[in-house]
Amino acid sequence: MKTLVLIDNHGGKATKASLEAISYAIAMNAGNVSEVTGIVFGKIEGDANTGVCGLTQLVNVSSTSDSAAIAHWVVQYLKESASTLFISSHDNTGKEVAPRVAIAWEAAMISGVTQMASVNGSYTVKKNVFSGKAISEVVTNDNKVVMTILPNSFGVKKQDGAVAIQAVEGSLSEGKVKLSEVKGNHAEGGIPLPEADIVVSGGRGMKGPEHWSPIEELAKELGAATACSRPVSDIGWRPHHEHVGQTGIAVRPNLYIAVGISGAIQHLAGVNGSKVIVVINKDPEAPFFKAADYGIVGDAFEVLPKIIDAAKAYNASK
């Protein structure tokens, strides 16, 4: 099945989530990369780093525009190339472009896919529902399909690839939605939360924003992003973009370390895709321990320094 993968262009490079989408597309084609073409809009550096996951064909449209213009360009390409599958990451770009593609291309769409699809005329694929508390198996009634892949579900499968880039001079129509600026820099020197492999998260048990340095220090030692629970962002101890949970960001890191978070069901909904969960809480009855792989019942301000020291020793021995 000829597959087109939309690649989100972040400063000339593909995002990690986009590399995962490419890996997914290659695996869907049983490793036959000649069936997979990447498409990226705007100026890129080199192959936009897409070679690391084995991509061999990349279309680079020199200009970019809003989701409507991108989707219309993509649909034209899908039709001309007789493709049958369009894949993007389930990120902001994918969530704007992919539904438009599904409508204009008259395809069936499944969003937030977490596992490989099986194809037998129609597609059968699994995705998380009920905020990760259940998994649904969805069947398309069409073999022309749009899928968005949930970040941190499939991973980047590294393999060598020499990317042939087909450069297309700007032919996008002017968009009605214009990005005028990007303010601030939340992750200055840090790691963006949705892409992080490790997350260290604090709750009300941290007792105040002035006590956040152990969280930040442990995150720094582990190469982790920092996060927080909803009460902590609601009372303004930490910014909204760090709020992990049902109504905040859902994260799926390899390791989630929760400190001073009791583990309300709404918080668990945002972290239950994590591979390994560590809970540190002074209350042995905290519900979070039921969802944890490792637990420490103790005072965060006594426990965290020990873990930070051990992490420093581990880093020094690497």
């Binding site: 508390k133 398309t140 103790g298």
Partner: peptide, 24 residues
């Protein structure tokens, strides 16, 4: 254009390994 064929519960956690705070 799509339908749900079935729902599953996510695999259960195998249990939480507790570490004493002094052994953190």
């Amino acid at each position: 254009k799509t339908h749900v064929s079935k729902f599953d519960m996510p695999p259960a956690k195998s249990g939480c390994k507790m570490i004493a705070p002094e052994d953190a």
